[in-house]
């Protein structure tokens, strides 16, 4: 794999992370991750959609009239999201019920439009596909980290399995109700950005 393609994939994971650096897609990142499981499914769904929308837009980028390019991007994204939501409903009904409204909200995720406009409109299909996968995964791992912290301290469980032993509760430990509030997601994302900056700014 040549260096440019590799960079297209790895850059959004950390150095140009959509949430940490570009600060895109924050709203959905805050909403769905009070628990780990929806965070993982949401991360994967977004990855699939960023990958394919980047690929499709990159393939047709030279034919798109400049004046209506945003609308064309939106149509492609909306069509993909609708198809993903229909496929989930037919083949993974439980997951689709759990994600319910959030699948539809992927359309409004700024990462999608951001990457289409900034990358797919000016790069080849393979690089765009990799950039899409990288951006999706870059978004997903933040969601997973925040979801894990919130579920662990907010409910004492991970993926629904109890992690904090009963002995701790008997000794007076109480789940932190604050963790289940959306505000706490913002604070944790802030902390992740802080830690991330400490490591990246040294370079």
């Amino acid at each position: 794999m040549d260096a440019k393609l590799k960079q297209a994939f790895t850059e959004p994971l950390s150095l140009n992370n959509p949430i940490l650096i570009q600060v895109l897609g924050i709203c959905s990142a805050l909403a769905v991750n009070a628990q780990l499981e929806p965070a993982i499914v949401m991360g994967l769904s977004v990855t699939v959609i960023t990958a394919f929308s980047n690929l499709i837009i990159s393939l047709i980028r030279k034919t798109i009239p400049n004046r209506i390019r945003i609308i064309i991007q939106l149509v492609v994204v909306a069509a993909l999201v609708t198809i993903v939501s229909m496929v989930l409903k037919a083949f993974a009904y439980d997951v689709s019920v759990q994600l319910s409204v959030y699948v539809g909200l992927i359309i409004t995720n700024c990462i999608l439009m951001g990457r289409l406009e900034a990358f797919a409109m000016s790069n080849g299909p393979l690089a765009s596909l990799l950039d899409g996968i990288g951006s999706g995964l870059g978004y997903a791992w933040i969601l997973v980290v925040v979801g894990a912290v919130r579920e662990l301290f907010g409910a004492g469980t991970l993926l629904g399995f109890q992690i904090i032993p009963d002995a701790c509760y008997e000794a007076g430990y109480v789940n932190n109700g604050m963790m289940t509030m959306p505000a706490m997601a913002l604070i944790i994302v802030g902390c992740v950005i802080w830690v991330h900056r400490i490591f990246t700014s040294k370079n």
Binding site: T63, I64, P65, I68, I71
Partner: peptide, 12 residues
């Protein structure tokens, strides 16, 4: 000419 009105209309 991808910027002409006709093209834009047909494309959309």
């Amino acid at each position: 000419n991808t910027n002409s009105n006709t093209y834009t209309f047909l494309y959309a």
